[in-house]
């Protein structure tokens, strides 16, 4: 006895790979199987999740010079928010979002700072997470890339060298600016200029239509390593006015919604010198201070 059956051709299964899949960050077309965008190196998992959930995340960018403490701050923040007693509840979207937290916390647990973030965009860590505020029923989706300071500076100096940075800054709805309080306290001005360049570049990327209106994006200016500069904790705004006058003035003129914070992760640091090896700065203990507050402020201003 013969029966007729319909068998799909294998080529039909392959056809889906021929359909271009747009990157969520830059919009350029990629294949369905791509893990990183071929144009901007952003993880394609973000685009897949956005397509599945139908919710586009708010992009929050973290600016700062190399060594300002972006990775340590973000990793510690994600770790603190993923615990039960945090003022905001954070849930990671996808395994790749946990890498930043894992790398940072495992390094700190070994009494080490996490290794330097490479400038290559395909090596960056991205945190895609859902944040739930007990004061607000609606959770919000956030996308926070941990970009390298050198790459940001290069992009500010030579636009389009790192297309992903331009795309991210253009889409940024909230900004965290990291400033090394220790260096600012000792009179160093190089990172002040760098941060000013980045903020200028950020405002330059706003479209002309939007440029007529004042920039109301929440900008949290976080003075990092404040544990080694105690007066910074007492009055972050006054510290910035005294030590970072150029940045202070720029923020006053161009940013309507900015606030100064002080934070510190390591309670105490020391230099470790291994015989025949390099001299490494190590945290002696963990004493996170002022980590969650800037983020809570930013998220609550994002929602408005």
């Amino acid at each position: 006895m013969r029966t007729r059956t319909a068998m799909p051709l294998d080529s039909v299964r392959l056809a889906q790979f021929a359909v271009p899949f747009p990157c969520h960050i830059c919009g350029s077309e990629n294949t369905l199987a791509a893990t990183l965008c071929q144009h901007c190196s952003a993880p394609m998992s973000i685009a897949h999740q956005v397509r599945e959930t139908g919710i586009a995340p708010h992009v929050v960018t973290v600016l700062g010079s190399s060594g300002a403490g972006k990775t340590v701050y973000l990793g510690t923040l994600l770790d603190m928010l993923s615990r039960e007693r945090a003022p905001l509840q954070l849930t990671s979207r996808g395994a790749y979002s946990l890498s930043l937290q894992q790398n940072t916390m495992s390094a700190l647990a070994r009494c080490e700072f996490p290794s330097k973030t490479p400038s290559e965009a395909d090596c960056w860590n991205w945190a895609h997470c859902q944040v739930r505020d007990p004061a607000d029923r609606r959770p919000i989706e956030l996308l926070v890339p941990d970009m390298a300071g050198e790459a940001m500076q290069t992009e500010a100096d030579h636009p389009l060298t790192f297309p992903v940075i331009r795309q991210l800054l253009g889409r940024s709805e909230g900004v965290m600016v990291m400033i090394d309080a220790l260096e600012a306290g000792t009179g160093g001005s190089s990172q002040e200029f760098l941060v000013m360049k980045m903020l200028s570049y950020l405002s330059q990327l706003r479209t002309d239509r939007r440029r007529k209106k004042p920039d109301t994006r929440p900008v949290a200016l976080i003075l990092t390593k404040a544990d080694q500069c105690e007066d910074c904790f007492e009055d972050p705004s006054g510290f910035a006015r005294r030590r970072l006058p150029g940045l202070w003035k720029l923020c006053q003129q161009h940013l309507q919604n900015c606030h100064y914070f002080a934070s510190g992760v390591a309670g105490c640091c020391a230099w470790q010198v291994e015989f025949g090896r390099q001299r490494v700065r190590v945290p002696l203990r963990l004493e996170p201070r002022g980590i969650v507050e800037p983020f809570v402020w930013l998220v609550r201003h994002l929602q408005k």
Binding site: S66, Q153, T154
Partner: peptide, 23 residues
Amino acid sequence: SEGYHLVATSPGVTPDDARELVA
């Protein structure tokens, strides 16, 4: 600057070439 960047160049390196070297 700080971090990875062109720490030193000879005078004849053009800005476009310098940008490519960084990229």
